[in-house]
Amino acid sequence: MELRKTEYPDTLVITVEAPRIDAAAAIRFKDLMREYCASAPARIILDLAQVDFVDSSGLGAIVASMKQLSEGQVLELATLSPTVEKVFRLTRMDTVFRIHEDAGSALQARH
C-alpha cells in the first residue's frame, strides 16, 4: 500500500497505489493519510483509479481519514471502480462524500 501526492495550488491529490484497501491495508492507509493531510491545503482529493476493491475496513479507514482532517479541510473522492462504488452506495457513504468521475474532473469542479 503506497500513496502518491500531487500538489496543486489549492488542492492536494492523493493517489492510492494499491489494488485493494482492505483489512490488511487499512491501518497503513490511515497512517499515511494522516501524515499527508496534515500539511495539505483545504481541498484533498483521494484518487482511487488503481483501486479495484474496498472492504468495510477500508471504508472505515477512508471515513477515519476524513474525521482526522483539520478544520476547514475537505476530503473528496475520485474514480470509483464499479465494486467500490457499490460499497459506497449500499452503505450510503456516497451521501457523505463528494464523488467525482476522475481526478481531472475533480480538479475542474468548483468547491
Binding site: 468495510s56 471504508l59 472505515g60 471515513v63 474525521k67 452503505t91 450510503r92 457513504m93 457523505v96
Partner: peptide, 25 residues
Amino acid sequence: SPQNLDCPTDELPEGGFGWFLIRLL
C-alpha cells in the same frame, strides 16, 4: 442494522458495515 449517517462528521461510524452488507447481498 444500517448505520446512522445523519450526524456530525466526527461521529460518523468507522465500522459495523460488514454484517449490514452481508445481509443485504
